[in-house]
């Protein structure tokens, strides 16, 4: 990944030096090991801060809405699809946006990795597909492939769908036998089993809204859970209210979700909220042949009125 970082820094420097952009949004390493965080830099000297590795899972599309001036932004496959979404949904003008594409090999699931390691991690590094982790016990190596985030395992758009610059050569896209095996598995369950599954899923929710805030699709000035006239969803941790929140949040992502995994990444309670959104991704694909964020000239299927739509689309 070092080559990516190098290339990104070069491009960023150029863009800032030539004043083509006012800012570059990318990642820098955090203050603790094994954490990358978003950063916005405005001077070419700061370009050295920029990094890119398997920890850069956050979706930077979240930081580009209604920008002041022109901005450049680092985009993995999924991020770029959310940027397409943003342009389609008028959150940013394409001409104010410079996309530095990064062909992606998948991001690392930190909580999974943490399970394999005892004690505090003091350093982290990666080389190619190998992860090196240092703890009090010494250095351990892992194969990145074994610790990919769930959504990255299912990703079929690792290369950015739009970009102005590329920080590397395109990667080969994964061929999946059944991209919706996870959804099918739930679909095959009994009504009761599904019910229990989702009950277990949401019972730990503390309604911190981290999933919502991390999601690049959530940008309403007032979220439905905060509506007050009437206040139809309670703000408590009442199970019905929690379920209503998760249900409608997912529904608002129908036809728009790129399965970037930001919601899961952000959840402090490790709730797999993708269990909701994955179903809608599958339905959009099967009913409308639609995958979100691939075409900058098309609106998502639920945004358009077409008499030829399948009758059961409303369901």
């Amino acid at each position: 990944m070092d080559t990516y970082t190098k290339k990104i820094r070069e491009i960023a420097k150029d863009l800032l030096a030539s004043q083509k952009v006012d800012r570059v949004i990318g990642f820098e390493m955090g203050t603790i090991p094994m954490a990358a965080r978003p950063v916005s830099i405005e001077s070419e000297n700061d370009a050295e801060k920029l990094v890119f590795n398997s920890l850069c899972a956050m979706n930077l599309a979240n930081y580009i809405r209604k920008p002041k001036g022109t901005i450049a932004v680092i985009a993995k496959g999924c991020d770029s699809r959310n940027m397409v979404n943003h342009v389609v949904e008028h959150q940013v003008d394409r001409e104010n946006l410079v996309i530095i594409g990064v062909p992606c090999h998948g991001m690392v699931d930190k909580s999974q990795l943490a399970l394999e390691v005892e004690g505090e991690i003091t350093a982290y590094d990666e080389e190619g597909q190998t992860l090196k982790i240092t703890t009090a016990q010494g250095e351990l190596t892992f194969e990145k492939q074994d610790f990919l985030k769930d959504n990255c395992r299912l990703c079929q758009h690792r290369n950015p769908v739009i970009h102005d610059y590329m920080a590397g050569d395109p990667v080969t896209e994964q061929e999946l036998e059944d991209p919706f095996a996870d959804v099918n598995e739930i679909e095959a369950m009994s009504q009761e089993a599904k019910s229990t599954l989702f009950e277990d899923l949401t019972k730990n929710c503390i309604r911190c809204y981290a999933c919502r805030n991390a999601c690049p699709l959530c940008f309403c000035p007032t979220c439905f859970v905060d509506e007050s006239s009437p206040q139809w969803v309670g703000k408590s941790q009442n199970k019905t209210d929690v379920d209503t929140f998760h249900f409608l949040r997912a529904f608002h992502c129908a036809g728009r979700c790129t399965d970037c995994g930001a919601c899961v990444e952000a959840c402090p309670m490790d709730i797999d909220v993708r269990k909701f959104t994955r179903k809608l991704i599958k339905d959009s694909y099967e009913m409308f042949g639609w995958e979100a964020g691939l075409d900058i000239s098309k609106r998502p299927p639920l945004d358009t009125f077409n008499p030829a739509d399948p009758d059961d689309f409303i369901m």
């Binding site: 439905f224 139809w232 019905t240 209503t244 249900f247 409608l248 529904f251 409303i314």
Partner: peptide
């Protein structure tokens, strides 16, 4: 019109 139908109403009714 059935287009007026918002998911809110379905959820709300069930609730």
């Amino acid at each position: 019109c059935s287009g007026r139908m918002s998911p809110k109403f379905i959820l709300s009714a069930l609730r």
